[in-house]
């Protein structure tokens, strides 16, 4: 049982990194980056490529992956955001879809379609913790994600760059008037967002593998997490991501937790992962209709 919890927490913390990147771009430029899921996939493949060159644990590869992905994020801003920055946000939505198509097919052409596994963060295998057996990788994912989320917090709250990032997110014109070079800050935001997505890719690509078509699934998770957590709220996105993972893993596990449920007619149908996905979307619709500001309130004032 606790093992299931650890698994869902590991999945959720990787989703959280992804959603964090999504919400940073959202706040900086008020546009949805639909390539965010494909950036996770790209991060996974970058990790796989480094893993083939250097036989070292994933934690050593992490800085390399972050740097490469930050460059990719900078390039994403250059081709898909800056040319369209004076257009309505929907233009960026579509240009990032095009970038997603390019990334996905580039990965397919370079690496082939077979699933790949990146090196584990420290070492594979299992570890016994107070009587329960959990995978080392799952614990490592949770730890690394927690450190990265904390780093993001420190970067944004305690550094000059962070102040500029926040100022730009709050009011771009005002930031410009204060002498902040907004374009640099936006480029940095894309770089950070892509680096976080890449980290998620590295973390996921060991336990859960990576294939070129993974992006579509991840972007939906990030999008839902950000809406559930409250549009534009950074802590909300993290919590939303954890909730999604918890729901995905916990609902199908209910018959294990409450043994009586397994005997109900249609239990295997009701507690399947497909039904869990359907319920996730229905819950999302309910949240949108009943509480459009998200569960934790809306941080960004949308422009009318």
């Amino acid at each position: 049982m606790l093992q299931v919890l650890v698994n869902s927490l590991a999945l959720g913390s990787a989703y959280a990194l992804l959603a964090l990147g999504f919400v940073l771009i959202l706040n900086a430029v008020n546009a949805v980056n639909f390539a965010q899921g494909d950036l996770v996939m790209a991060g996974g493949f970058v990790a796989v490529a480094f893993g083939m060159l250097l036989p070292v644990p994933g934690i050593v590869l992490l800085p390399l992956v972050l740097v490469v992905m930050a460059l990719i994020g900078r390039a994403l801003a250059a081709v898909a955001y800056f040319p369209l920055k004076s257009r309505p946000p929907v233009s960026v939505f579509i240009s990032t879809i095009a970038v997603g198509i390019i990334l996905q097919n580039l990965a397919n052409a370079l690496f082939g379609a077979e699933p790949r596994a990146a090196p584990p963060l420290f070492a594979g295998g299992l570890v016994e913790l107070g009587g329960i057996v959990v995978s080392r990788q799952a614990l490592a994912i949770i730890a690394v994600a927690a450190v990265m989320i904390a780093a993001q917090y420190v970067l944004f709250q305690r550094t000059a760059l962070g102040r500029r990032l926040r100022a730009t997110a709050q009011d771009r014109e005002m930031a410009e008037a204060l002498g902040i070079r907004v374009n640099h800050v936006i480029a940095a935001t894309f770089a950070i967002a892509a680096a976080y997505a890449g980290a998620a890719g590295l973390l996921l690509a060991n336990t859960f593998f990576v294939t070129p078509t993974d992006g579509g699934n991840y972007i939906l998770k990030a999008y839902i997490a950000v809406v559930i957590g409250g549009w534009g709220s950074v802590p909300g996105a993290v919590v939303g991501a954890l909730l999604i993972a918890l729901f995905e893993v916990m609902l199908p596990s209910l018959p294990l937790i409450v043994p009586g449920l397994a005997g109900l007619p249609g239990a295997s149908w009701l507690f399947s992962q497909t039904i869990a996905t359907i319920l996730l979307y229905l819950m999302l619709l309910v949240v949108l209709v009943v509480r459009p500001q998200g569960l934790f309130g809306e941080a960004v004032q949308r422009r009318a």
Binding site: L256, A262, F271
Partner: peptide, 12 residues
Amino acid sequence: RDMSPVLGKAKA
């Protein structure tokens, strides 16, 4: 991605 629920139920 996470197969533990389905495997857990299968085992049960």
